[in-house]
């Protein structure tokens, strides 16, 4: 993936930005950059790949800790930077998490400190989605009990790589851009 690099926003700056350490003046320069550095995505993948302890090829970052990776034997799965794998990226990764719900005001107060501003516990709960490997908090929701977990993002990876980046993925298929989340609870129901 080595190409001529746009040095207006160097990879080192991107690494610092990812770590939350880039000087604000440099961030402002990045915001003002017009046109944007069009090799950003490739630099990003390099920075991300260097930060994780595993070798699976990152296709896309979808949350602070989560990536869609290509498995060597085939398949695209969601993987945490700790190494835990959540399975097919077309299934909402939240269904592979450890899940805590805060249902009482007392439980909510640990994370919403201003008591007058807390959610109404008789109507909603606070959900916290953790990685089963490292117990990082990957997602939160404030919803009524029984609300289906929100599938935050299903990328159209083939269109992205082929049409927007001009570098098609080797395992292209129309099946990749399909929401398969409901297959997981269907399996659970069968298992009983």
């Amino acid at each position: 993936m080595e190409q001529k690099r746009d040095t207006r926003f160097p990879k080192e700056h991107l690494r610092l930005l990812v770590e939350g350490k880039l000087d604000w003046e440099e961030v402002k320069k990045a915001i003002r950059l017009a046109p944007k550095d069009n090799d950003r995505f490739w630099k990003y993948l390099e920075v991300l790949q260097e930060r994780v302890p595993w070798k699976d090829k990152i296709l896309l970052r979808i949350s602070d800790h989560l990536y869609i990776v290509a498995k060597e034997g085939g398949g695209r799965v969601v993987k945490c930077d700790c190494g835990h794998e959540f399975g097919d990226y077309r299934v909402n990764w939240k269904l592979g998490c450890r899940i805590r719900t805060r249902k009482t005001l007392e439980e909510m107060a640990e994370v919403v400190a201003v008591e007058e501003a807390a959610p109404e516990p008789h109507l909603v709960e606070i959900r916290e989605y953790y990685c089963p490997g490292c117990f990082s908090q990957l997602g939160t929701e404030i919803v009524p009990e029984g609300y289906p977990p929100i599938f935050e993002m299903l990328p159209d990876l083939d269109t992205f790589y082929r049409d927007w980046l001009g570098t098609p993925l080797p395992d292209e298929s129309p099946d990749w851009f399909q929401d398969k989340t409901l297959e997981r609870p269907a399996e659970w129901a069968k298992e009983g």
């Binding site: 602070d64 201003v114 959610p119 109404e120 909603v124 990957l138 997602g139 939160t140 404030i142």
Partner: peptide, 18 residues
Amino acid sequence: GMGRAGMGMCGGYPGPND
């Protein structure tokens, strides 16, 4: 009473109520 949003960003919490 519902919080400022139904979900947070990458594990952060949504803002609290007015």
